[in-house]
Amino acid sequence: MIFSKKEKPLVAHTIEKCLQCKKENKRPFKEGDTLFTQGQVCTSCKDQTSILKIFGQAIE
């Protein structure tokens, strides 16, 4: 169609937030990631993170 533009596919991302230093880390979604559950260890303060958001973002 003339007016239709091709949509870019969404890539799933996970946002983890450190419970201690409140730093947010964005990484690709891994199977088993669930909102509000424990994430990976914080890269800066080595404390536990929690999964804050899971969303899809179009590849640019």
């Binding site: 969404l10 799933a12 991302h13 958001k53 899971i54 969303f55 899809g56 973002q57």
Partner: peptide
């Protein structure tokens, strides 16, 4: 009905 987009998730 598809994976939640960033625009929507950011509004929580």
């Amino acid at each position: 009905i598809t994976l939640m987009t960033k625009e929507i998730a950011d509004k929580s």
